[in-house]
Amino acid sequence: MKLGAYLLWAAVAAGAGLLVLLGYFVDTQVILGLRLLLMQWAVLLAAAALLIGLINLLAVHYRKVSLQEPGWPYSALLILTFLVTLVLGLFFGPDFQVVLLLFNYVQLPVEASLMALLSVSLLVAGVRLVARRRDVFSLLFVGTALIVLLGTAPWLAAGDSAVAEGFGAVRAWVTQIWAAGGARGILIGVALGATATGLRVLLAVDRPYGD
């Protein structure tokens, strides 16, 4: 029974996946139609999976509140704001004025402030790297970062001097030649890795959906 179920799941994943993959390379109406249909079903399933994830988030924090675990008032706040936004969004739509107010005056400022915090974290991480690990690669990393920053940022004084222009030219050379070569290698490496992982799933060597 278990073997039969495992074969069925593997066949569904491989069949659906190979049909969609075929649609990338074969320009036939039947294949393209099937690919579109399967993609639509997958998008619906992904949205349903998102809702299931949200229900799970709610359940986890509800458990924290009901057992009064450490930090439960924060979980209560999360549940309250989650339910208010979700109910308003479901009944009146995401374009409803109050939902937009929540988005513009809660979500956007917190998102932007968290990103602003990231600048300090990045700076601290860079300084720590120099302090703790002084090898050629750290020097290359920090040297490149300094050149790019000096070549990009506006100078407080002597912004039109030959030194400033020189930094701009070196920055262009480093980013568009040296860094671009490395970035292309990383991109191709990531794409090869993604292709290998995807093919392992399509050939049922890896079965993340379970047996």
Binding site: L57, F82, P94, Q107
Partner: peptide, 20 residues
């Protein structure tokens, strides 16, 4: 926590109204 609550509620509303 306020941000996570609002963002997840908004994401749920978008998933319902734009996809499901």
């Amino acid at each position: 926590y306020l941000f996570i609550g609002v963002a997840s509620g908004y994401a749920g509303a978008i998933a319902w109204h734009n996809v499901i």
